[in-house]
Amino acid sequence: MPRKPSVGSGDERLVGADRVLAVLVELAGLPTGASLDEMTQRTGHPKPTVHRALASLGRAGLAVQDGRGHYILGDEFLRLAFAHHEARPEHVRVRPVLERLSERFAETVHFAVLDGPDVVYRDKVDPAVGAVRLSSTIGGRNPAHCTGVGKALLSRRLLTLKDVEDWVGERELVRKTPRSPGNAAELHAQLAQTRERGFAVDDQENEPGINCLAVPVYLSSPSEPSGAISISAVAYRTPISVLVEAADEIRAIIEGALGRRERTA
């Protein structure tokens, strides 16, 4: 079955530049590239349309053909993406803290922001040593309600059960594991505990075998978090109890470098 892209207000109405962007988005999900026939099948668009879109991307340096004739993202796309990422002020400020925490705990550390019902990872530092590393990627997303970074940020916005219910709306809170909060009442209880503690935990709620502790960070405002930093650990190597016991140390490292968190419960 062809998988149509999500660019535009309706796939059946994609025209012109929208089609080019739809092909670009599809190609970005194929790190080893794809043939013209494969791209046609995946997008569900006519082959001439896909070919013209790839040609447009090629002229801009955003797509190239490798030695097998497969299309892959071009170096110009990667240059633009990484130049933009490196230019983010938050990235420059947060990176040393991520490196310090990763070195201290020998685990992966993330910086993420809230985007609607999801969190988006803006930076990541893997441990220098250790056989197991996480598969998360910069720019990747996860549901906010079952991640430490998401709950750290939601706890500052959703103060009452009504707030949580309004945020959830008609959506279903997906239980990614049996430990995930599955309704507004369960999430509200976790957010209340997060406010009381000053940090959030994800005890294998987003991915089995992975837990984390997250703290909001305040880069531009003393009361509105800019994002959150989490130490994401392999559970058998660093149990959640170890991270909770080190919460004061983690918070001190973050606040010492980036400023103190807002103290009002």
Rank of each mutant, 00 (worst) to 15 (best):
4 K>Y: 07
6 S>L: 10
8 G>I: 06
13 R>V: 10
15 V>T: 15
15 V>S: 13
16 G>H: 10
16 G>C: 08
17 A>V: 08
18 D>S: 12
19 R>K: 13
20 V>K: 07
21 L>M: 05
25 V>G: 08
27 L>H: 07
29 G>T: 04
35 S>V: 02
36 L>Q: 06
37 D>L: 08
37 D>S: 09
38 E>L: 03
39 M>H: 02
39 M>K: 04
40 T>H: 01
40 T>G: 07
41 Q>V: 10
42 R>K: 11
43 T>Y: 02
49 T>Y: 00
52 R>M: 09
59 R>S: 14
63 A>E: 08
64 V>Q: 04
65 Q>N: 08
67 G>W: 01
68 R>C: 07
70 H>W: 06
72 I>V: 15
73 L>R: 03
73 L>N: 08
78 L>R: 10
78 L>E: 12
80 L>R: 12
84 H>T: 11
86 E>Q: 11
88 R>L: 15
88 R>F: 08
88 R>Q: 15
89 P>C: 11
91 H>Q: 10
93 R>C: 07
94 V>Q: 04
95 R>N: 13
99 E>N: 04
99 E>Q: 10
100 R>E: 13
100 R>K: 11
101 L>Y: 05
103 E>G: 04
103 E>P: 00
105 F>T: 01
105 F>V: 02
106 A>T: 06
107 E>L: 04
107 E>N: 09
108 T>R: 03
111 F>G: 10
111 F>R: 09
113 V>R: 13
115 D>N: 09
116 G>C: 02
118 D>P: 02
119 V>W: 04
120 V>D: 06
129 V>Q: 07
136 S>P: 00
137 T>V: 15
142 N>Q: 14
153 L>Q: 10
153 L>T: 03
154 L>R: 03
158 L>T: 02
160 T>A: 06
162 K>H: 15
166 D>L: 10
167 W>Y: 14
176 K>V: 14
178 P>S: 13
180 S>M: 11
182 G>V: 11
185 A>I: 05
186 E>Y: 01
189 A>S: 15
192 A>E: 13
193 Q>C: 10
195 R>N: 07
195 R>Y: 05
197 R>T: 06
198 G>T: 07
202 D>W: 04
203 D>E: 13
205 E>N: 08
205 E>Q: 15
208 P>E: 15
213 L>R: 04
214 A>M: 06
216 P>H: 06
219 L>P: 02
220 S>L: 00
224 E>S: 02
225 P>L: 13
225 P>G: 01
225 P>K: 08
226 S>V: 00
230 S>K: 03
230 S>L: 08
233 A>K: 03
237 R>P: 00
238 T>A: 11
238 T>Q: 05
241 S>L: 11
241 S>R: 15
242 V>I: 12
243 L>Q: 14
243 L>K: 13
243 L>A: 14
244 V>D: 09
248 D>M: 06
248 D>E: 15
249 E>R: 01
250 I>A: 08
251 R>P: 00
256 G>M: 01
258 L>A: 09
259 G>Q: 05
260 R>I: 01
260 R>V: 02
262 E>V: 03
265 A>L: 14
